[in-house]
Design a protein around this nucleic acid. Structure first.
Length: 309
DNA sequence: AGCCAGGCTCTCG
DNA sequence: CGAGAGCATGGC
């Protein structure tokens, strides 16, 4: 048996959710969207890699299969992980009810109904991806992330597509700071990522322990790691731990989009954003952030489509 | 050709 | 304390 079914919670829009997760030409990191199916390269506890394929099977059901085959326990692992990867635990009805009185966000959310906040496989993965993206444009971040995936990830063939499992901490430690630096990372960022790989191996960074903390405790624990400031920690809480109420209040793109949508152009400052989000979105500030970024990506994709025409 | 990108650390006053 | 320099590289 290499095939299973899981039931998605409602509302759930498979296409919106997977498209947001694979925002660049259907591919981002270890995620791929092709032929109507979502592919993701996963790791076993022993570090081995295999691919999972998820496709809608009608009536809210999802078909989960293993295009690369695998050992007996892989399917059980995949069916356990996929609901988390696709954000099944998010309280969308609660979020929608909360922001109903915010006409701007309600309009944005209306066009994204059923989008779920997809997650990374691990804190390690989310940390490395976030650090690669610190301060630089998303285009540069994508190039750097892809380089790391290709050089240090594990290549899989899944359904005729190439897929990379995220690099293991062992691999990035072995790459060394110079190896990482050759991948367009600054010396600082190469040091940060190398250190994070080491601390993941020695248990200083531990998903289960972070998962048991409340938001501020987890942010404090993460920001004690060199290279991890508030922005990075907050995105890791959103992306890896699925925390619904975390606001990356220092995020430049978020300050800009809120400025555009609500204040007629100028980016809002951090204080104003913090108060504004608390009043309107709490306790769903993280979900609001995810939706605003999905809105941005959708706009960008629309503009590119127009330009191509 | 610059200048700016989904920040962070370190140094200096 | 707060302010400022430096970082890497792709796009506009």
């Amino acid at each position: 048996m290499d095939d299973a079914r899981i039931k998605a919670p409602q509302p759930f829009d498979f296409d919106l959710t997977v498209r947001h997760q694979t925002y660049y030409r259907g591919r981002a990191g270890a995620d791929l969207y092709a032929g109507g199916a979502y592919y993701r390269a996963l790791r076993r506890p022993d570090g081995g890699a295999f691919a999972v394929r998820v496709a809608p099977a009608g009536d809210g059901w999802l078909d989960v299969s293993l295009p690369t085959g695998g050992v007996a326990s892989d399917l059980a692992l995949a069916t356990g992980v996929v609901p988390r990867l696709l954000g099944f635990e998010a309280d969308l009805p609660g979020f929608y009810a909360r922001i109903a009185a915010d006409p701007v966000l309600a309009a944005t959310v209306g066009a994204l109904h059923g989008l779920r906040p997809a997650r990374a496989e691990s804190v390690f993965e989310a940390l490395v991806m976030a650090i690669a993206a610190q301060q630089i444009s998303s285009a540069v971040a994508r190039v750097i992330r892809d380089g790391l995936m290709v050089s240090y990830g594990t290549l899989l063939q899944a359904g005729g597509h190439e897929l990379h499992a995220f690099p293991t901490p062992e691999t990035l430690v072995a790459a060394g700071i110079d190896g990482l630096r050759a991948h367009k990372l600054s010396l600082r960022k190469a040091e940060y990522i190398h250190g994070i790989a080491e601390q993941t191996l020695d248990g200083t960074i531990d998903d289960a322990r972070l998962g048991a903390m409340d938001d501020e405790e987890a942010i404090a624990a993460l920001t004690s790691v060199r290279g991890v400031g508030r922005w990075t920690a907050q995105w890791v809480l959103i992306r890896a731990l699925g925390r619904p109420d975390v606001l990356p209040e220092g995020d430049l793109a978020l300050k800009r989009v809120v400025g555009e949508l609500y204040f007629g152009g100028e980016p809002v400052d951090e204080r104003r954003l913090t108060g504004f989000a608390m009043e309107r979105w709490s306790p769903y500030r993280g979900l609001a952030t995810t939706y605003l970024f999905a809105h941005l990506r959708q706009q960008r994709a629309g503009l590119q489509g127009d330009a191509a025409r």
